[in-house]
Design a protein around this nucleic acid. Sequence first.
DNA 1: CAAGGTCATGTAATTGCTTACATGATGGCA
DNA 2: TGCCATCATGTAAGCAATTACATGACCTTG
Lengths: 356, 356
Amino acid sequence: MNIYDISSRAGVSIATVSRVLNQNPHVSAETRERVLRVIADSGYVPNAFARGLGLNTMRTIGLLSPDASDGYQAAALNYLESSFREQGYDCLLICSGTSLAARKAGVENLKGRHVDGMVLMGSSFVGERPEENIYLREAAEGMPVALLNGEFDAPGVYSALCDDEKAAREAVRHLIEGGKRRILHLYHAMNSSGRRKLRGYQAALKEAGISYDEALVRSVEKDRKSIDHVMKMLRDMEAEGTRFDAAFCSEDILAVGAVKYALSRGKRIPGDLAVVGYNNSLLCRCCEPEITSVDNQLRALCDHIVRTMTAALEGEAAQRSRTFAGRLVIRASTDGRAGSGLNTVKKHSQERKDGV
Amino acid sequence: MNIYDISSRAGVSIATVSRVLNQNPHVSAETRERVLRVIADSGYVPNAFARGLGLNTMRTIGLLSPDASDGYQAAALNYLESSFREQGYDCLLICSGTSLAARKAGVENLKGRHVDGMVLMGSSFVGERPEENIYLREAAEGMPVALLNGEFDAPGVYSALCDDEKAAREAVRHLIEGGKRRILHLYHAMNSSGRRKLRGYQAALKEAGISYDEALVRSVEKDRKSIDHVMKMLRDMEAEGTRFDAAFCSEDILAVGAVKYALSRGKRIPGDLAVVGYNNSLLCRCCEPEITSVDNQLRALCDHIVRTMTAALEGEAAQRSRTFAGRLVIRASTDGRAGSGLNTVKKHSQERKDGV
DNA sequence: CAAGGTCATGTAATTGCTTACATGATGGCA
DNA sequence: TGCCATCATGTAAGCAATTACATGACCTTG
């Protein structure tokens, strides 16, 4: 069943059928109706590949997620896909895994698929070494590339990110204001966002006159075992004589581990150990006490990416990069007075704008 | 840059270039190498649309997820995509939303895209009314359709599902063995899986000689507000004089709400209120006490779907439907002795096989 | 040495659309 | 009435691959 079948059944040429399919106004109402009836009767669906070949686009965006099962990326995925579809673009998904080689293969896969643009999710796409920035060739060749939570200044590369440094500084400052001095920083990856968080952590310590102690900064894998890993690590640290009274974590799941550790040792929260997470995911509400966390404005980041990507695809000028301020959502893990459901939003700092 | 450019630069015909691209053995080693070098130098990438037009496939599977931000569907998505890609299929993602109209539009979108097959995620795709089974036309027209956690007996429809009825019966039996008699059933959707769970709940009550009380069966929206909704609902129920000593929930997030309710009222868990969730998601481990939950073998379901889908696409015979047994993972919310990390697996029932 | 087989390579048809350009009908207006 | 603008419609040339079939070189073998 193709456009020729429809044209002969309707007694018109294929050009007319095509016009009907594409809402071209140069068709009489009568003819249009007849063609539409034939199409409906026959269950004809235009061949998308042929259309793509002629137009050189199938209106597809590639989404590359190192780990779509992660709550944060899943939420982003869901929101990005819906938004792009609203704009008439469908999304091809690649869950690459986190290794550089796998992510690179993902980018090449998307290129081979001739997607119109691609969105790379997560801060691991901005590397310090040039070979880590695996999308630059594609961007240079004219395919718009958007980074969610990463920033790279190059033509064709668009990005939206949270001001993690500032958010981290505020989070750690909040712990210090609660009287904490020995503050752990548990992180899961020292990628671009991880580096920004670390800088914020260090800045907050510095402004409070607390010296930076490398022994308090530890990395933990982020997966289903993270809770147990964190518990074990903190137990070992205390056994070795390392003291701490708070934890600033780069991910909510690590914060859950810290809370569970405190509970397992009979420590009071936040009295003996105050805990801050990052991403303000569902997990924060599930813990008891509930966990203070940084909301990094995922919706706003995604909105910006969809806007700039569609603008770029339609040849309009688009702001290359935009930074959004995080919000510290204060809960019981840092504030004994905070009851369930009565979350306080600490800061709502102004947005900063960059690029064009 | 197309196959003609490559062929003229390499001094061969387009057929030879095509042969090199497709690993056709009828090319001399020397020629092959020359062509590959030209391709590498020029950065040529074959046009996927033209290829798709000729072959009438772009090796794409459509994944339709009503809500990809849900932890369960996200995990399925991630695993399905990786597995399909290993088999040489890329995935087009549609996050439709849950309404029937939206899901139907999603199916039609995928059909228009000419995907090779589609996977519909979630039990809402099996309806009691015929018009709810929105994929039957596509299946009849020859596109394989796979249902994750749903079952429908028709040619071209493949499915993998958890024996929710049995799993629910075991879960409720476990509560009864713990001495509970007034067992709530909190559910989020009365779709095919919801109906199976309800039947299991009723069966367990019946075999224990406990009469079924409709007042204990309540529905709750599943979203970020679910915790608060459940808390409020249970508070109201108790205020109205409804008594209960356990809760069997169709989703982990609802179980979290039940646990939080108990904590907020100073009730002991599991003494005053025992709680069972469903899906064995990360949330179960975050709560304190940790939550007993049904693991419905997502990996196995996904594996079966990938296997049958690829078999169907390659024209091989494939088992149409397969049911997997759930596993009850016992934690502290039903068993005071269960410590963190020391989870017990209650049952590991045999699998049942159906269809061909 | 001729016939025939093997193998690398080329030619050209095919896939199903979009669209620039051609055509022809109709109607208004001088 | 004749000319031209307008508009519906048709013709045919792309788009960039795959692949059936043709060709011709070379080798084997009777």
